[in-house]
Design a protein around this nucleic acid. Sequence first.
DNA 1: ACTTGCTTCTACAGTTACTGTAGAATGTAG
DNA 2: CTACATTCTACAGTAACTGTAGAAGCAAGT
Lengths: 137, 137
Amino acid sequence: MARDTRLPIGGLAKRTGTKVNTIRFYEDIGLLPCAARTASGRRTYGDEDVGRLAFIRNARGLGFSIDEIRSLTALALGPAQDCAEIRALGARHLLDVDEKLERMARLRAELARIVQLCDGGPVSDCRVIEAIAAGTA
Amino acid sequence: MARDTRLPIGGLAKRTGTKVNTIRFYEDIGLLPCAARTASGRRTYGDEDVGRLAFIRNARGLGFSIDEIRSLTALALGPAQDCAEIRALGARHLLDVDEKLERMARLRAELARIVQLCDGGPVSDCRVIEAIAAGTA
DNA sequence: ACTTGCTTCTACAGTTACTGTAGAATGTAG
DNA sequence: CTACATTCTACAGTAACTGTAGAAGCAAGT
């Protein structure tokens, strides 16, 4: 077992791919508990902190908002019955993502169409501006 | 010809599906020119303003940033040669959108997988939290 | 004429999730 | 012992709005 793997904030940052300021920010808003400090007042982190921050970063990467992550961790620390709520939160988020994906796909098609309007034609015939102005239905 | 179709800010807002505050915001940052005013100091808008705001809203809907829209309108008002630049801007934005789409699709798959972990199993076996914490590769 | 109620005015604070900067102190390597 | 890197706190800035406060203007009903 690797004991005494205490990291300074920069180490934790490197380990989790997070910026130092972001870690302090998470502590400020209570997403991370207050870190332990050295005699001189510097933050030190252990394995549990690495795990918790990794969880946060992964959840953010999955598109969960900070408020959602707050719910998620609160539920995770709560009674086992709340598992249903956890799943519900995930499912709701999945619906959001699907909706966003659909909108983006439509946007993509429209944008491609508009950019095509320029392709190969003489420069003076560019209709991109007009196409955008005309609206995307 | 419909002359005298001057609108107050609320009318323009309704016509273009924009909030009143947003219109003022666009004026503040110079995206819209300063509006004409009535004797008592209220903004009035004509057809050209409707068109310009519609263009902005459509471009925003297509995901262009305000800075990009600034470039677009500057180029649109410039010499015809800049059409190539307009197309380039659109193409660049299209690449961005494609990239975002890809990332979101991957995220969607991972999220779906995680939510599945709960489905049908007993409540006490929920692994959503662990799955998120484990990272998404 | 008067009052009610809606719209508009300016100006600024709040949102989300960070990122960057200033200035001081502390830690580390040569 | 002297650089240089890291950390500390505290606050300003980012994007693109949204919301609020308090005052003033305007249109309609009585």
